Amino acid sequence: MSDPIPAAPDRSTIRLALVVGGLVLAVLLGFGLGRLNTAGTVATGATSSTADHTHPPGTGAHDHSAVTGTDQGAGGEPGGLSVSSAGYTFVPLASEFPAGQPGQLRFQVRDAQGRAVTRFAVVHDKPMHLIVVRRDLTGYQHLHPTMASDGTWSVPLTLAQPGVWRAYADFTVVADNGGQAAVTLGVDLVAPGGYQPRPLPAPATSTTVDGFTVGYQGSPQAGATVPVTFTIEGAGGTAALERYLGAYGHLVALREGDLGYLHVHPEPELVDGQVKFWLTTPGAGRYRLYLDFQVANKVHTAEFTLTIP
């Protein structure tokens, strides 16, 4: 005797099965698309980070932060406070220099395995920016060392007066996978002798250097990003500024006490003949500002004392 033929499901049962199946399919598709979107965000972020550190032409004003390896945001801590950060170490081959005598600073940047790093991105026309200043914030120098094939950097250096000096290596490392990380490391150098620290000049918004009158407008505030514009006047009026390292000015700010380091770049074009920066100071205190600008193929540096309440 043959088995009975099962009754066909009614229409309501078929309709319910289709609804349930559709819901399951939608959930599965949504999960898959979500994973794809998440992966796309990570990839986009990595690409953006790389672009930030190569700084293509037209890049706007920004700060360099050595703590995070990215451009500094509001409230970020300054760099250069440590000899090691982000897996890299600043290793000078000698740290003592006779005061007032020309010498040669040689150093390496080493990775976490102690190997000399040899791949650096060219940022603002140079692969390495070296800032040197005495701990009383005098004797500022902005230098550009050259690198040998073994990763040893060298640059002529004169520490004009006895004392402890701070050297900042400001650079961008290129990893094996092509990723880039901006880092600033600081190390102390010594010029033996009687150290006579100089007090900081009083705060002022105008100064003179090499026949130029330089002034700034703006009210920097702790933890906030605010515009600061500089005017440079010569004997005949507004100075004919030239691009130096790809920009119309470079601003370094050092915090009194711990010598925390900020390196700020301006808007790509002059604004009404002025050099405009966006400055973020991380906290209260006194800062020394160093503005590098170029006229007639010569670089000049104007210095200011700034107090942040």
Score class of each variant (00 low, 15 high):
residue 18 L to E: 10
residue 142 H to W: 08
residue 103 G to D: 05
residue 67 V to G: 00
residue 70 T to F: 14
residue 229 T to Q: 10
residue 13 T to I: 14
residue 85 S to D: 11
residue 144 H to S: 07
residue 74 A to W: 04
residue 177 N to D: 15
residue 174 V to T: 13
residue 53 H to Y: 14
residue 100 G to R: 09
residue 217 Q to M: 13
residue 107 F to Y: 10
residue 33 L to I: 14
residue 277 F to Y: 09
residue 199 P to Y: 09
residue 76 G to R: 08
residue 266 P to Q: 04
residue 169 A to F: 06
residue 197 P to V: 04
residue 18 L to R: 15
residue 24 V to F: 08
residue 244 Y to P: 00
residue 295 V to S: 00
residue 196 Q to P: 00
residue 12 S to D: 11
residue 231 T to Y: 03
residue 84 S to E: 07
residue 261 Y to G: 02
residue 252 V to A: 05
residue 72 Q to R: 15
residue 8 A to W: 13
residue 274 Q to D: 02
residue 131 I to S: 06
residue 15 R to K: 13
residue 213 T to A: 09
residue 260 G to A: 05
residue 74 A to F: 03
residue 98 P to G: 03
residue 176 D to Y: 07
residue 226 V to W: 01
residue 275 V to F: 00
residue 275 V to T: 03
residue 100 G to S: 05
residue 222 A to H: 02
residue 148 A to C: 02
residue 2 S to M: 14
residue 117 V to I: 10
residue 140 Y to P: 00
residue 174 V to W: 10
residue 171 F to S: 03
residue 288 R to N: 04
residue 62 H to C: 06
residue 129 H to V: 01
residue 188 D to P: 01
residue 144 H to T: 07
residue 304 F to H: 02
residue 215 G to K: 05
residue 270 L to V: 01
residue 116 A to S: 12
residue 17 A to P: 00
residue 178 G to P: 05
residue 267 E to M: 07
residue 272 D to A: 14
residue 30 G to V: 10
residue 125 D to V: 11
residue 131 I to T: 12
residue 29 L to W: 10
residue 137 L to W: 01
residue 165 W to E: 04
residue 171 F to C: 05
residue 51 A to L: 15
residue 192 P to I: 07
residue 274 Q to P: 00
residue 179 G to V: 07
residue 55 H to I: 12
residue 4 P to C: 13
residue 271 V to E: 10
residue 147 M to D: 04
residue 230 F to H: 00
residue 246 G to Q: 06
residue 21 G to A: 15
residue 294 Q to S: 03
residue 271 V to R: 07
residue 256 E to M: 08
residue 211 G to F: 10
residue 98 P to F: 06
residue 59 T to A: 10
residue 177 N to V: 08
residue 284 A to C: 11
residue 263 H to V: 10
residue 290 Y to M: 11
residue 112 A to F: 09
residue 2 S to I: 15
residue 53 H to N: 12
residue 94 A to R: 15
residue 240 A to Q: 05
residue 173 V to F: 07
residue 38 T to D: 13
residue 32 G to P: 02
residue 102 P to E: 11
residue 290 Y to D: 01
residue 80 G to T: 05
residue 1 M to I: 14
residue 198 R to T: 12
residue 81 L to I: 06
residue 171 F to G: 02
residue 305 T to W: 01
residue 85 S to Q: 13
residue 71 D to Y: 14
